[in-house]
Design a protein around this nucleic acid. Structure first.
Lengths: 167, 167
DNA sequence: GTTTTTACGTCAGTCATGTTGACTTATTTC
DNA sequence: GAAATAAGTCAACATGACTGACGTAAAAAC
C-alpha cells in the first residue's frame, strides 16, 4: 500500500493508472460508435456493415480473405453482411485478374456515399479531439494505441512525417 | 480541397490523419477485448458479463440505474446479464439503506477473482503499451481519449497529479 | 498431369447481446 | 393521497457472432 515512490522516471504504473486506461478505452469506443450505429439503424444496417464498408473503402479491390484478416471474424459471418451489402448495391465484386478465384471488392457510388456519411461523424469526433489536444498529445495517442494493438497490424501505420515543419 | 494552411500550430488535420485515428481505435479495441473474450467463452460468459463485473468491481455498491448510465444499454439487457451473474454467484445485491428501492451491487469473492483474471490481461496490455510509450505519450493518450468520449463522462477522470516529481 | 492447397461460397443450427413495448411492485417525493 | 422513481418481468424480435459440414473452381506443388 501507499505505493508512492517518486523515481526519476515519472512512469511508474499504479493500479489506478491502468484501470483508467481500461476505462478510457471503454468510454471512448462506446461514444465513438454511437453516432454511426444510430444512422445505420435507420437504414436497417448495423455496425458490422459499417466495418465492411469502411475497410472496402479503405482498401479498394481488397479480397475476402484480406477482409477476414482485418475483421477477425468467420467467413460465414462476413458472408452474410457482405451479401446484404452487395444485394443492396453498396458493394460490388469482380474476379481477380491475377488469381481468378479471388473476388475483388469495391464500393459503388452509393457505397461511397454511405461510407462518407458514416465516417464523417467519426472523423469530426476525432478532429475535435485532436484539435483540442494538440499535436504532441496526438503523437502520444498514436504511440500508445499502437502499443495496445497486436504487433502484427502495426505495420499498417507507417511512421508519420511532420508537415515539413519543426523537428 | 487542399486545405493546407500551415499556422503556428503544426496541427493541421489531413483526411489521412483522421482515417488513421479511426483505425487506431478499431484495431486497439479489437485486440484489447480479444483475450478476456476468449477466457469468458470458456466459462460460458460473454463480454457483457465482463463489463458488468468490471464496473461493479470498480464501483462497489453501485445501483442498477448507475450501471445503466455507464453501459448505455436497456434495463432488460442488463437484467439478463446481471441475473446470470447473481445466479452463478459472481455478484450480490442488497437493498439500499437510504433508499430501499435500490439494489446495491457488489462482487462476491468469486466475482472479484474472475474480475481480476479478466482485467489482468487488459492491465498487462495497457502497462506494456504505457511503458513502451513513456509518460509524455501516456498523457497525450489520456487527453485525446477524453476528447473523443462524450463530455458528460469526462468528470470520471480527474486531472492527474504527477508523483510529486517534475512539473 | 495428378494431387493438394487455397479462395470463396453455402446450408444449418446455435448463442450472446442488444432492442421495443407493456406491465407490476415497492418506495420515495411532492 | 398522487405522482414519480427504482427495479423487475414477460414477450417478441434483430443483429452479429459462432461451429461444423460440404461444394466448387482455380492455383500451386509434386
Amino acid at each position: 500500500m501507499t505505493d508512492v515512490k517518486t523515481g526519476p522516471n515519472p512512469l511508474f504504473l499504479r493500479e489506478e493508472d491502468l484501470r483508467q486506461g481500461i476505462e478510457l478505452l471503454f468510454y471512448a469506443y462506446r461514444d465513438f460508435t454511437a453516432e454511426p450505429d444510430a444512422m445505420l439503424g435507420k437504414i436497417g444496417l448495423g455496425r458490422a456493415h459499417h466495418r465492411v464498408i469502411y475497410f472496402v473503402g479503405r482498401y479498394p479491390g481488397a479480397t475476402v480473405t484480406e477482409l477476414l484478416a482485418i475483421l477477425r471474424i468467420t467467413k460465414q459471418s462476413l458472408s452474410r453482411v457482405l451479401g446484404e451489402l452487395m444485394e443492396q448495391g453498396y458493394v460490388e465484386q469482380r474476379p481477380g485478374t491475377k488469381d481468378r478465384r479471388q473476388r475483388l471488392l469495391t464500393l459503388t457510388d452509393k457505397g461511397q456515399e454511405l461510407e462518407r456519411q458514416l465516417s464523417d461523424a467519426q472523423r469530426a469526433r476525432i478532429a475535435r479531439a485532436y484539435r483540442a489536444a494538440g499535436a504532441e498529445a496526438v503523437e502520444g495517442f498514436r504511440t500508445v494505441m499502437l502499443g495496445i494493438m497486436d504487433e502484427i497490424d502495426r505495420a499498417k501505420f507507417p511512421t508519420p512525417r511532420g508537415p515539413g515543419g519543426k523537428r
